[in-house]
Each structure stands twice: as structure tokens, then as C-alpha cells.
Design a protein around this nucleic acid. Structure first.
Lengths: 291, 291
DNA sequence: GTGATTACCTGACTTATGTCAGCCATCATG
DNA sequence: CATGATGGCTGACATAAGTCAGGTAATCAC
């Protein structure tokens, strides 16, 4: 029967194949072959170096060269030698090219909007899509150091606070907690890392320092769609590396027994439990680790 | 930022595009163009009539004709006029064609197995994939009348019982419940319907009759991945239509307040609550509906 | 500087894909 | 059995996509 894992995976594959095919087909509507349209889109999305485009679209050097030439003939792009390395070339959209790129973007947005509108439960569908996308794109997750006041960081923190509010019996009010000053989580005092998966922030962690050898780990959060991928462990080891680079020798953190995954993670990754070191109302577990 | 619904949909779309592309690419490994391979696969999956293949793959009549000819030349298929209508033609795999088809199947299975093995939480990934596939394939859901002892029906019933066991405080033991005789759920006494989505059973409902004008609705179940699509309502109206066709005039059912979605569904789709009509230990709500 | 390497381009192909008009055999209808 | 419709095939094209062997200019290693 078709309820075994492989059949289910293949059913998924069939379902999305027809979606993907339909999107490709609607791209044809602008009177340009698909390959050319894809190159235009790659450039629009900021892949300007010819080598980067070739790599991304897995195109033969000769073929890409011709596609670029045809876009150039249409007046949609211009190419110029890379000032760093005059052998390489950089493609940029012209005015007309940017307009054409926006038109393709519009098609994609339109299709997405329609697909979501057809579904009575878009939030559930999107949660499932996030999970699938995070799983399939697992190897391309990057860790970016950002300002904790940036939009993406604030998004993660908002999701984190909302989750604490759901999971703590008492709810969670960030103003009652010792909210770290943002500047304590920026180099050289500290750090703030985002886990990014193809543009979507799916996790974060903060390192709050005071300039001395002692610092605190704060705000470890993984998006529900990215749980089970071993991401928290990777985020923690990444932030520990940043701490070492900042000459921090001792890390502390506090957490709550309502977050058993977190407690378990710290217990089996080299942290030892210590006495309460602050009077924050929420935490009930305290850990320390020497680097 | 990229956390709005459209961006999330498009991120998903990008993620699966590269998966789909990779599968297509691996099909090329058998030294046959993709179009030809697709035709072979369509035939292998039971689409024998030339018109059906053309329709499914959205191919031009002339192009398909040529692809069929090239498969014929390779000795992978034979074509013969349809005995019903000698204008139409039927394609069938030869021995070699069947072997080649299996090789393509093997590639797909292999890729699915590898993708699942890469993931530390395949069950969660598959649940999300089921949800997405059911949502995208929503318009192609069919309702099939089957024997309740068939493999697909038994799968649904098993899932149904397991869910009851999880949701009832007391657990659920099917042997304590008045399990309908399978023959009571087969025409002409009753009926058993499966909701099928591209080969996967995603819901069921039974009509248990005794030959008279009174019958009972049993075993309404929707797979978690297909909830929120309005499927239970469609299954119910479908089974009511079958009941009418069997000259049944009054329907009854029992359910449990641990299944509030079900209770709500019955309340707002024409059922009225009645007194207990059996001594089954599990139900605590009883409904009736005149057809 | 010399020679090797790199990044891209061009020309000359091949193959794949798609389109269209016209053909023939068959079928439905009266 | 004449008529028109249908289903598939063929020939003649056109375009898209992919491959490969040079070629040129810039860069790198020494």
C-alpha cells in the first residue's frame, strides 16, 4: 500500500512537481524562454557575478554567456568587468531589466497568494511548508552575526517571548526579566547569532558580555519548523566559538524546567548546574561552562 | 522581511524546486531524454491510452506520437489499436520496458530513501509532507467505496482506533465496542467510503445497515494531515447520498465529547441530539438525522 | 618577464522540445 | 453510404537547451 515512508515521500514529490511545473509555465507568459528568465531572476536576486549565476543555475559557461548576451540585446542588463578581477564580469539590471524582474516577482507572488487563498487553513499549511523547507535546506543553513535590534532578530525574539508565555504556567512578561541591553550582545562585549535558512530566520542565540571574562548565554530559540535538526547544538557551539574569540573564559545561563529540551541540551553538552546567580523571577535552573 | 506568508510560500517553492530538478536530472542518467522517460513512466503507472498520456503530461499530439515511436524503436513498448475504438491506441510495456520502468522507479525510491535518511526526524517531515500534498492535491481527492476489510480501509481503521486510544482518558479497546460486522458496511446493507488523495487514504466513514430503513454512521476519521480541508463534511454528505440510494431514511450515530470537532460537525449539519440508543461503553453523545 | 591558470566569450555543432498543417482510418449519425 | 467529427500519425519547421573545442585577456606563481 502507499502508506510507507517512501510512498509518502514520493506522493509529496508528485504533488509539488505539478506546482513547480505550473509556475515555470506561467513564467513563459512573458515571451522569453525559461532559461533566460531564470538568469534574469538570479541577477535580480543579487547574484551579479557571472560565475555565481553559472554556479547557482548549473549552466554551461557557453550557454550562460549566450543567455546573458540575449538579455543584453533586450536591454535588460548590462555587463562590466569586475573591478577586483578584470577577467570576471558583473551583470547589473538596467531600468527596464528591474521592471521586468519585478514582473516575474509579481507572477510568483500572485501564484503564492492564490495558492494560500485556496487553502482554508493557511497557517497550518505554511507551518508544514516551513518544516519541509528547513529540512530540505538543512545543509544551507548559515549563522549570521547581527544586531539584536535588527528586524530579523526582533522577529526571533518576539517568537521566543511568545513561546515562553505559552509554556510558562505564569505566562511571561519580558519587562519582569533582566532584558539584556542590546549593546551587551554586540561585539566587542557580546554577540547575537541568527540561524538563517534561505532568507528565513529559524533560530537565534545571544551572548551577553560586560567586557570581562564572564558572559551569559541568552535567548536560545529554534523555530518550531526547524526543531529536531540539531540546530540548537550547532548554534550553541557557534556562539561559544564567538565567546572564545572575545576572550571570554566562563559562560553562564539560566533556564526553566518548563523547557526540558533546553535543560537536557545543557546537561549533555558540557554545562554543569550551579546555584542561582540572579533574582530573575522566571528561571529555576542555572548552568556554567568553562571555555 | 521574509516572514510574511507569501515569502514563506516562495521559500518552500524554491526548496522543492531544487529537489524536483535534482530528481529530473538523475532520470537523465539512463541515457534517455526526460520527455521520453516521463512517457515511459506514465505507461508504467497504468496510463495506457495515448489520449490519457497526452492529457496527463500535457503534450502535443504530434510530439507524443514521436516519443511513443522512439520508445517503440527501443523495444520498450508496443502499441495496438484499442479494441473498443480502433481509432485510439493503447500502449503496453514490453518485458524490457517493464524492466526499464522498474529502474526509474528504483531511482525515485532510492532518492526518497536517501532524503528521509538524511533527516533526523523523518516522521515529522513526512507528516508535514502529507499535509502539504493533501492541501495541494485537494481538488483531486476522490471518494471510493471499498470493502472495509481491504488493506487501505484497515489502515484507516487502525489509525482511527489509535487516535481514540490517545484521546479518550480511559484509552480505547475496540473489542469492548460494538464493532460492526464488515458485511453490514457493504452494499446492499451499508457502505464504506475512503477519501483518497493520489493513492494515500486520508479519511474514511462507514454506513452500517441491517437491510431496513434505519442505519448507523460509524468510523468517521480524517488523517491529521488532511484536517481543516472540509473533508469530513464532504465524506458525510457522500455517505448520506449512498444511504439514500440504499433507501435508508433514518441515520443514527454515537460519538464522544472527547472529539469536540465531531460533535460540532454533527450539530451544525442537520443532526439532532437524541437519547442513548445503545450500551456501548465509549460514546456519550447520540445523534439522529432524517434523510 | 614567462608560462600556467582562470574567467569568460564565440563558433559550430547536436539534441530536445514544441508547433502546425495536412493525412488517413475509424466512428457516429442520419 | 455520405458527412462530419475524432484520434492519432507524419512531415516540415522553429526554437530552446546543451556540449565542446578553441580563443582572448587578465591574473598568478615564480
Amino acid at each position: 500500500m502507499s502508506t510507507d515512508p517512501v510512498s509518502r515521500y514520493r506522493r509529496f514529490s508528485r504533488a509539488v512537481t505539478s506546482e513547480v511545473g505550473a509556475l515555470d509555465h506561467s513564467f513563459l507568459g512573458r515571451g522569453r524562454p525559461l532559461g533566460t528568465a531564470r538568469v534574469l531572476n538570479a541577477i535580480g536576486h543579487g547574484r551579479c557575478e557571472v560565475a555565481a549565476i553559472r554556479d547557482y543555475l548549473r549552466l554551461d559557461s557557453g550557454l550562460l554567456s549566450r543567455l546573458l548576451r540575449s538579455l543584453e540585446a533586450e536591454g535588460l542588463i548590462t555587463t562590466a568587468p569586475d573591478p577586483q578581477d578584470a577577467r570576471a564580469r558583473i551583470a547589473t539590471l538596467t531600468e527596464a531589466g528591474a521592471a521586468e524582474f519585478r514582473a516575474y516577482e509579481e507572477i510568483s507572488d500572485q501564484r503564492a497568494t492564490e495558492a494560500l487563498a485556496r487553502h482554508p487553513r493557511p497557517e497550518a499549511l505554511l507551518a508544514a511548508m516551513d518544516l519541509v523547507a528547513s529540512a530540505l535546506g538543512r545543509d544551507r543553513i548559515t549563522f549570521d552575526e547581527v544586531d539584536p535590534r535588527s528586524e530579523a532578530a526582533r522577529y526571533c525574539l518576539g517568537e521566543y517571548y511568545a513561546e515562553l508565555a505559552r509554556r510558562f504556567d505564569t505566562g511571561f512578561d519580558v519587562s519582569l526579566s533582566r532584558d539584556p541591553e542590546a549593546t551587551d550582545m554586540i561585539a566587542p562585549r557580546g554577540s547575537f547569532l541568527l540561524a538563517m535558512s534561505d532568507g528565513l530566520p529559524i533560530g537565534c542565540v545571544g551572548l551577553k558580555g560586560q567586557g570581562g571574562p564572564l558572559a551569559e548565554i541568552k535567548r536560545l530559540w529554534i523555530a518550531p519548523s526547524a526543531r529536531g535538526l540539531g540546530l540548537s547544538r550547532r548554534l550553541m557551539s557557534e556562539i561559544e566559538a564567538r565567546a572564545r574569540a572575545l576572550r571570554i573564559t566562563t559562560l553562564r545561563l539560566d533556564t526553566n524546567s518548563a523547557l526540558p529540551e533546553a535543560v537536557a541540551l545543557y546537561r549533555n553538552s558540557g554545562w554543569r548546574e550551579i546555584d542561582r546567580f540572579n533574582d530573575d523571577p522566571y528561571p529555576d535552573h542555572f548552568f556554567e561552562k568553562n571555555l
